[in-house]
Design a protein around this nucleic acid. Structure first.
Length: 425
RNA sequence: GGAGAAAUACCCAAGCGGCUGAAGGGGUCGGUCUUGAAAACCGAUAGGAGAUUCACGUCUCGCGAGGGUUCAAAUCCCUCUUUCUCCGCCA
């Protein structure tokens, strides 16, 4: 969400940004917002004046009552009743206009970073850089399910009986590998100076609506029956929620946090659960990182954040590349976003394993995350990025470390977390 | 889950329909005193959201949150949230 003042003062810039994102149908919203804003302010002014009159009249009544000047009191009372009637009308109108205004403000996209490549959709995303050589071995790489089944590491049949499609049992060394990845990633981030957190895995509706749009909420979030609680889709929800309505101390910035959580997603909508196996599932686990910082530091942090993920994958010997989201593919709240994609030697292409986003002050404005400044408070910038999210990440791991006999090499950095095990057979 | 008590500014706390946007302390900041400090004394110190103004300023909202009663709400009523105490249940 943009600053209303900014829209008021820079309508052309806002429109230009909408065009860059190929959302021309939203162009009229800008003028509508400016018009609505004008009306709301006029109403506020009138209401303010009336309230001021009511306040002074009411205290006058107090004085007159003590002097027993009842006739005068009745007169003033009547005037105040009139004021209240008028206020009722004004307030209703103001509320309506404000909700119309907010509705429009919510869908006007955030101003994208000047470095974001212009493009219509995900086909125009831009590869930034590759890390490690994407190798295709001279033997055939089976589908990841077959690899995992061969080492008795997965049981989807039982999962379907117990919970349905989109769930999994990981077993034995693969389950252990899964934990090893999470634990290694946790320590990796702790070593980068991040504060490790285990957040609530359920959050209230007001936090949900604070961190995502209604459409997203409907498509992603599981609701707990009979409670005002939702299962989190990512720990970003509870981690950013932690800062709702706070005024932060300059000295304590930046907040750099890494959190572990299971993530629950309905995966309703466009694709459903088409992919066989553990690529797209209702439940997975994720190590996440978030940063809350000074506005002028967010760009710098953005670079650091996705590079941490790259470094982590490279340390496990998994080839990755960074792919920048073009303007048309960038979610409305985001200033800039880069995906980290891992190499799939089976598909001979890269697939998404992480996503790093700079939200600028958009999220902070929605959630009221401010920094105490010398001359008034201002909104913080927020960023989030995946450290690693197995089991999807395991697809990349097993495909890249598969031996011709179907055994899987454990990357050296994970071996300590696997009791020294070097090969999963 | 049941029964009680509470939520007021940076902290503690008074107030329980109008003169209270809020007594009193502590803290913090400034000053007097002192070689310097402490103590003592004096003074200052209400965060936040919004409107308006070139600006000084003015106005509105604001006593956990949201509703309601009233000419008028920190104060009365309702709902919710949180905290504390006790009981029950449970890793």
């Amino acid at each position: 969400m943009l600053d209303l003042k900014f829209v008021r003062e820079n309508p052309e810039l806002v429109k230009e940004n909408i065009r860059k994102k190929f959302q021309d149908q939203k162009l009229p919203l800008v003028d509508e917002v400016i018009e609505l804003d004008k009306k709301v302010r006029a109403l506020k002014n009138e209401g303010g004046e009336l309230r001021a009159e009511r306040n002074s009249s009411s205290s006058k009544i107090g004085l007159l009552m003590r002097n027993k000047e009842f006739e005068e009191v009745e007169k003033i009372k009547q005037r105040v009743v009139e004021i209240n009637d008028r206020l009722l009308v004004l307030e209703k109108e103001e509320e309506e206009l404000e909700s119309e205004l907010k509705k429009r403000m919510m869908v006007i996209p955030n101003i994208i970073d000047p470095t974001v490549p212009i493009g219509k959709d995900d086909s125009e995303n831009v590869e930034i850089k590759r890390y490690l050589e994407p190798k295709v071995p001279d033997f055939e790489i089976p589908y990841h399910l077959d690899i995992l089944e061969k080492v008795k590491g997965i049981d989807l049949d039982s999962a379907r009986k117990v919970a349905g499609n989109g769930f999994y049992y990981l077993t034995g060394n693969i389950a252990r590998l899964h934990s090893a990845v999470i634990t290694y990633a946790r320590d990796f981030m702790i070593n980068k100076g991040f504060l490790y957190c285990i957040p609530p895995f359920m959050i209230r509706s007001n936090v949900v609506t604070g961190v995502m749009s209604f459409a997203e909420m409907e498509q992603m979030m599981y609701k707990i029956e009979g409670e005002d609680l939702y299962l989190i889709g990512t720990s970003e929800h509870s981690m950013i929620g932690k800062f709702i309505d706070t005024i932060l101390d300059k000295e304590k910035l930046p907040y750099t946090l890494t959190s572990y959580s299971p993530c629950f997603r309905k995966e309703k909508g466009a694709h459903g659960i088409e992919e066989r196996g553990i690529y797209r599932i209702h439940q997975f686990e994720k190590q996440e990182m978030i940063v809350v910082c000074e506005p002028e530091q967010s760009k710098e942090w953005f670079e650091k954040l996705y590079n941490y993920t790259v470094e982590l994958f490279v340390s496990m010997n998994i080839p990755v590349r960074t792919l920048e989201c073009c303007s048309g593919d960038l979610a409305d709240l985001k200033v800039k976003s880069i995906d980290v994609e891992a190499w799939s030697p089976r598909q001979k292409k890269y697939f998404e394993v992480g996503s790093c986003s700079n939200l600028g002050d958009a999220q902070a404005r929605r959630l009221g995350i401010r920094i105490k400044g010398e001359k008034g408070n201002y909104f913080a910038h927020t960023l989030n990025n995946t450290v690693v999210a197995p089991p999807r990440m395991l697809i990349a791991l097993v495909e890249n470390h598969l031996n011709p006999d179907g055994s899987i090499n454990v990357p050296e950095v994970l071996q300590p977390y696997m009791g020294g095990l070097k090969v999963i057979k």
